[in-house]
Amino acid sequence: MNHDFINLTTENLADEHLCCIIRSKKIHPGIEAKKQWLSERLKEGHVFRKLNEKATVFIEYAPLETAWVPIVGDNYYYVYCLWVSGNYKGQGYGKELMEYCLTDAKAKGKSGICMLASNKQKHWLTDQAFAKKFGFKVVDTTDYGYELLALSLDGTLPQFTQNAKNGVIDRQELTIYYDMQCPFIYKNIEIIKEYCETNSVSVSLIQVDTLQKAKELPCVFNNWGVFYKGKFETVNLLLDTAALKRILKK
């Protein structure tokens, strides 16, 4: 079945909703920040394709050369997110979105498609089992549990940068690298700031605001990366106070 999907463009971006946070016309800082980030990325070949309904059903991907991740490779697409939630699960939407990305890659002569994964399924990452049905395979790993999945169309393979594989930094305080790609980030930063101020926790919040900074990051990254005592902790955006307490007890 072919469903009614649309792609965000520089022309329709202002009027279309973002699937991950569906709101009325009331201004939402996270959505506005995401749309500002997207307005530049769309010019670089970034694709945001969504179901033409008020639903969380979408795929977001970009040429690896301009994808804000510490992964390198020639002529690949990088999938940031493929998300189908609620009553829309199990109806073939995810399959159709992935097939669109694959068809697009072939049409543009891409060498393949890659995405971030982990040896144990983690929040905010595409389901590995789903990806592997399309032929994705593990092509690179880190020492702290994350993997790079790739579907090669010509035999070439992407890889993590050495910095990303290391997963360590000199800073001992809670350190969070983030960009404004996800609408949830704005609110999460505010929550973390408030918690750390209230509990006298030292924190460094480092905004990744250029492609170069993203490619040089010391950890795997989809839009968020957390360190504590110099060691990488998580890409999980839902870093609520309970999760923060667990990390800070280490």
Score class of each variant (00 low, 15 high):
residue 250 K to G: 10
residue 241 T to M: 01
residue 148 L to F: 06
residue 68 W to V: 01
residue 34 K to F: 10
residue 236 N to W: 02
residue 127 D to S: 15
residue 11 E to G: 05
residue 78 Y to H: 14
residue 30 G to I: 07
residue 173 E to G: 04
residue 36 Q to R: 10
residue 33 A to K: 11
residue 72 V to T: 08
residue 249 K to Y: 07
residue 97 L to N: 05
residue 52 N to C: 00
residue 201 V to T: 12
residue 234 T to P: 01
residue 19 C to G: 15
residue 6 I to R: 11
residue 203 V to Q: 09
residue 206 I to L: 09
residue 225 G to V: 01
residue 98 M to G: 02
residue 28 H to K: 08
residue 197 E to I: 11
residue 94 G to A: 00
residue 210 T to I: 03
residue 36 Q to I: 09
residue 242 A to E: 12
residue 61 Y to D: 13
residue 68 W to C: 05
residue 129 A to V: 10
residue 83 W to L: 06
residue 216 E to N: 15
residue 41 R to Y: 00
residue 125 L to Q: 10
residue 148 L to M: 08
residue 238 L to W: 07
residue 158 P to G: 01
residue 80 Y to L: 08
residue 197 E to N: 13
residue 62 A to M: 03
residue 54 K to M: 02
residue 221 F to T: 04
residue 130 F to W: 12
residue 242 A to C: 00
residue 135 G to V: 05
residue 121 Q to V: 05
residue 192 I to C: 10
residue 129 A to T: 11
residue 50 K to Y: 04
residue 198 T to H: 06
residue 25 K to S: 09
residue 64 L to T: 05
residue 239 L to V: 03
residue 104 D to R: 14
residue 211 L to D: 00
residue 213 K to I: 00
residue 23 R to C: 09
residue 130 F to E: 11
residue 174 L to A: 03
residue 172 Q to R: 06
residue 45 G to S: 02
residue 185 I to N: 11
residue 60 E to Q: 12
residue 159 Q to N: 08
residue 188 N to T: 12
residue 14 A to V: 09
residue 134 F to C: 14
residue 145 G to V: 04
residue 173 E to D: 08
residue 205 L to D: 10
residue 17 H to W: 03
residue 153 L to V: 04
residue 65 E to Y: 03
residue 137 K to L: 15
residue 103 T to D: 13
residue 122 K to H: 12
residue 141 T to D: 08
residue 185 I to D: 05
residue 104 D to Q: 07
residue 184 F to H: 15
residue 192 I to D: 09
residue 42 L to T: 00
residue 7 N to D: 09
residue 200 S to P: 02
residue 147 E to Q: 14
residue 75 N to W: 04
residue 244 L to H: 14
residue 178 Y to S: 10
residue 203 V to M: 09
residue 146 Y to M: 03
residue 178 Y to M: 08
residue 223 N to C: 13
residue 126 T to R: 09
residue 64 L to S: 01
residue 42 L to R: 03
residue 46 H to R: 05
residue 2 N to L: 06
